[in-house]
């Protein structure tokens, strides 16, 4: 396992937190109630905080003299390794919640394993993040139940979001060559081991929310190899605006 393997492995985890954190940040000030606005902003804060811990570690590992901000803001689109799920737009509150829930359950299971990593940095980040993510999972899961088993309108909207976003769930369990090497070294996690548990968990909650499980034969993939949906370019042009316009400055 090389440092490059390790860095690429970290991107595969941290970029999810960054891009989802960025997506949720867009909502700050626009939530359906003040209480949900505050709660969603909290999740964005947690995710971005986790991102910083990972990227600071990348900066340490890198042979170049870089900072967390270089990692966050100065890569090209193909260099971001987040899954497609987290870059999907905030179409409506149902999409926001379903995207969150599909990710949170995975994230929680990943961190549970990462806590046992041989790498002390991963152990520490996972331990801290688990507390946060168990709250995220409860928030999104509770809301998904409310939307699914709420009114006829909310049920329809929740079902549409589930149907549209389901195709992005399989990619969560893809392992790149970097992932495999880091997992073999006992630093990373073999995510395939909890794939069954993941689908059991979300299926059970969808049933409780009186929603149907989509019958999908083909899943989308690409993000883990840096091949993103068209949304990604806009997320980055927004996020990287300052760093690109005013290079090499301290903020």
């Amino acid at each position: 396992m090389t440092n490059e393997n390790l860095i690429q492995y970290i991107y595969g985890i941290a970029d999810n937190s960054l891009i989802l954190g960025q997506r949720i940040s867009e909502l700050c000030g626009h939530g359906p109630t003040l209480e949900t606005d505050i709660a969603m902003t909290n999740m964005a804060l947690d995710l971005l905080g986790q991102t910083r811990s990972y990227y600071q570690y990348v900066a340490e590992l890198s042979s170049k003299d870089i900072t967390e901000d270089d990692v966050a803001f100065l890569r090209t689109e193909r260099e971001y390794k987040n899954v497609l799920l987290v870059e999907q737009p905030n179409t409506d509150f149902a999409y926001i919640i379903v995207r969150q829930y599909f990710f949170d359950v995975f994230h929680f299971m990943l961190l549970k394993e990462l806590e046992n990593s041989k790498n002390v940095n991963f152990q520490a980040i996972a331990k801290k993040s688990l507390k946060e993510v168990s709250y995220h999972k409860r928030f999104s899961g509770d809301w998904l139940k409310r939307l699914g088993d709420g009114t006829e309108e909310s049920k329809q909207k929740a079902q549409k979001a589930v149907d549209d976003l389901w195709v992005y769930t399989d990619e969560l369990f893809h392992m790149t060559d970097h992932d495999k090497k880091v997992a073999e070294a006992g630093y990373g996690v073999d995510v395939t081991i909890f794939k069954t548990a993941y689908y059991e968990t979300i299926t059970a909650l969808l049933k409780e929310a009186t929603l149907n499980i989509p019958d999908v034969k083909y899943f989308q993939k690409g993000g883990k190899n840096g091949i993103h949906t068209e949304h990604m370019g806009f997320i980055l042009s927004d996020m990287q605006y300052m760093q690109r316009t005013y290079p090499d400055m301290k903020w």
Partner: peptide, 19 residues
């Protein structure tokens, strides 16, 4: 300016402020 904040530290601080 949250989505365009120039650094991660500033982004987090601004989010927390608006919150």
């Amino acid at each position: 300016w949250i989505t365009r904040a120039p650094s991660l530290r500033r982004k987090v601080a601004l989010l927390a402020k608006v919150q």
